[in-house]
Nucleic acid binder design. Sequence first.
DNA 1: CTGTTAGCGCATTCAA
DNA 2: TTGAATGCGCTAACAG
Lengths: 337, 337
Amino acid sequence: MKNAPPTLKEIAKRLKLSTSTVSRALKDHPSIGLVTTMRVKKLAEELNYEPNNRAIFFKQQKTFTIGVVLPSLSESFFSTAISAIENKATEEDYTVILGQSLDDEKRQSRILETLRKHRVDGIIVSVGKNTSNFEFIETLGKAGIPIVFFDCVPDRADVIRIVSDLKPGIMEAIDTFVSCGHNQIALINGPKTLLASKERLEGYKQGLKKNNILFNKDYVFTSDLSEEDNKRVMSELIALPNRPSAIICFSDYVALDTMKVAKERGLNINQDVSFISFSNFPIWNHIENKPMASIEQFAGKQAEKAAAILFDLINERQGVDNKLISYPSKLIHLDSL
Amino acid sequence: MKNAPPTLKEIAKRLKLSTSTVSRALKDHPSIGLVTTMRVKKLAEELNYEPNNRAIFFKQQKTFTIGVVLPSLSESFFSTAISAIENKATEEDYTVILGQSLDDEKRQSRILETLRKHRVDGIIVSVGKNTSNFEFIETLGKAGIPIVFFDCVPDRADVIRIVSDLKPGIMEAIDTFVSCGHNQIALINGPKTLLASKERLEGYKQGLKKNNILFNKDYVFTSDLSEEDNKRVMSELIALPNRPSAIICFSDYVALDTMKVAKERGLNINQDVSFISFSNFPIWNHIENKPMASIEQFAGKQAEKAAAILFDLINERQGVDNKLISYPSKLIHLDSL
DNA sequence: CTGTTAGCGCATTCAA
DNA sequence: TTGAATGCGCTAACAG
C-alpha cells in the first residue's frame, strides 16, 4: 500500500541508465539525447516520480521556505499582509512559515530562533510594539539569513525597511478637518518609543502648520494602546476646558475605544466630535458610528514589496540600492466606500 | 565573515574523534565516556555548533513541519485557530506552513499540492465553502501524509474530523428568544450544500419543537453568504406579512449585513427585531448595535485538538479511536461580556 | 551523449 | 567505550 516513493535510482535501474542521466533527462538537460529523455520522462510519469524535496533541500542547502513574523493575525492589517506575502512566495515556489509574536518580545525571539534553526532561506518581520532587543538581527546575519522589515520597523539604518509614510495621510486628515471648520484638533498617539508615534506627531505638527493652526501640546495624548488606557486618555480629553472638536486616533482600535467613551458621555460621533483613524478596518463599512475617514497604509503593498526584496536577496538577483522604502499613506473617506 | 557553520565532522577532526562519537556525545548517549562527552560538548559550545536541520530532515525523512490550510485568516475564527495550532506545534518543535484557500477550490488544491511536494509531516485543513473535489484526501493518503479536518469538514466518515456541535448553541438561542417573549423566530441559513447549514437547520427545528413552536418553512432563508445576498434575504424577511421578531443568523457577518438593512428600514436592533449570530466576533464588544448573543464555536479548542491528534498520528503515538470529535457550542450573551 | 564518482551532514549498524 | 563504514536522494564535476 504505502510503498516507498520512486527515486531516481529506481528509474535508473529499470532503464539501465545512471542516476545522473535520469536526473539530467528530467530537467531537459541539453546533453541528453531526445530518445533517452523521452524514455525517462515516460517511466517517471508512470511511476508518479516526484523529486524528494528533503533531499534537494539538503543538497542545495536551502529549504525553499521563508519565515514571517507578525504581531498578530487577528489585525486585518496583518492578515492582508500575510496574504500578499503568501502570493509572492507561491510565485517563487516557496512556502511560508508563520509566527505570531503577539507583541511579546520573548515569544518573538523564540520564533526567530526556531526559524533560524529550521534554516529558513529568509525572514520578513514586523516587530512587536515593545521590542527593545534587536540582537536577533546580528544572529540571523551571522547565520546568513536575510531579513526584511516592514510596517513596524526598528529605528536603525542598517536594515532593510519597508514602511508607510504617514505624513501625507495625516496632513490630508488635518486638511479635511479644517475644511469642515475644525481648528481644535487633538492627536491620540501611541507610546513615544515607537517610530510610528514619532511620525504621527511629526505629521500632525506639519499639518497644523500648513493650516496655520498653533500647535498646542495639551492636545497631544499618549496611550499605551490598551483598551483601558485609550479610555482613560479619552476621558481626559473630554474633560479639557477647550475640548477639541476633532481627533486623530493612532489606530482603528483606539478609535473604537475612544468613540465608545464619547458616546457614553452623550457626544455624537462626527457631530460633537469628529474622528479620523489609521488602518482602514474593512469592517467600518458595517458599523454605524465610525470615523469620518481612515488613513490607509497599504498593508498589501508594503508586504508584497518586502517579499519581493527578500526574494531578490535570497536569489542574489541584486543588492538592495535603497534600504528604506516608503509608501505614502492616503486618507480614505469612509462614507464614500 | 559568513564562514560555513561547524559540522560534526569539524568537531570530530579537532578533537581527533570520529563523527559518530561526537554525534552520540551530543545526545548524551550512555555508551560514551563522561570525559569525552564533556570535551565534545565544550567544543560544540565554543564553536556554536548547531545541527543542520536540513540534513536531519533528509536523514529522518521528516521535515518537522505541518501544513495548515484555512479559508481565510481575516476571519477571527481562523486567526484564533491558527494561534492554537501554532502553540501546539511549538511544543512539539514543529513549524507551521500556512495556506489560505480564500474559499477558492483551485487555490486550495494548489496549496495542498505544494504542501505535499514539500513533504510536510502532516496537514490540518478547514475546507473552503464550496469544495466539491476531495481527491486530495487519496493523494495525500498515498503519500503517507496524515490529515485532520476541523470546523468545515468533508461529509465523509473515513477521515478524521473535529467539529463544533451546533445544536446546543442554537437550542439555547431559541430558549433565550422564547424566554424574551419571541415566538416568531427566523433562521438565515447558508448554502444547503454545507454540512454547517444542515446542522443549523436541524438544531433550529429541534429548538422550536422543544419550545412547542410550529416549524414554518417561510421563516427559513438561504443566503449564499455574500453581502448582497444577505441583504436581499433580509429585505425579503422584512417584507413578510408576519415579520419574525427574532432572527438566528448563519454567522456574525450575516448579522452585520442584516442588521444594517434592519436599521435602514428604521427597525431598532434587539427591540423591533432581535438577533443571535454565530462565531462570537471579538469586536462585538466595541460595537453599539450588536446581536443579543452569539454562539461560540470554540475555534481554539477545535484547532488545538486537531493539532494534538495530528501529532499523535505523526509520532505514531496511537491510532485514533474516534474519527469524529465534536465540541458542544455555547450561547454567549454579548452584554455580559 | 552517458557513466562514474564523490559528497552534502548526520545517524546508525557493525566491528573492534 | 570508540571507530569505520554505510546510506538517505540528489546534483555536479569529471571522465569517457
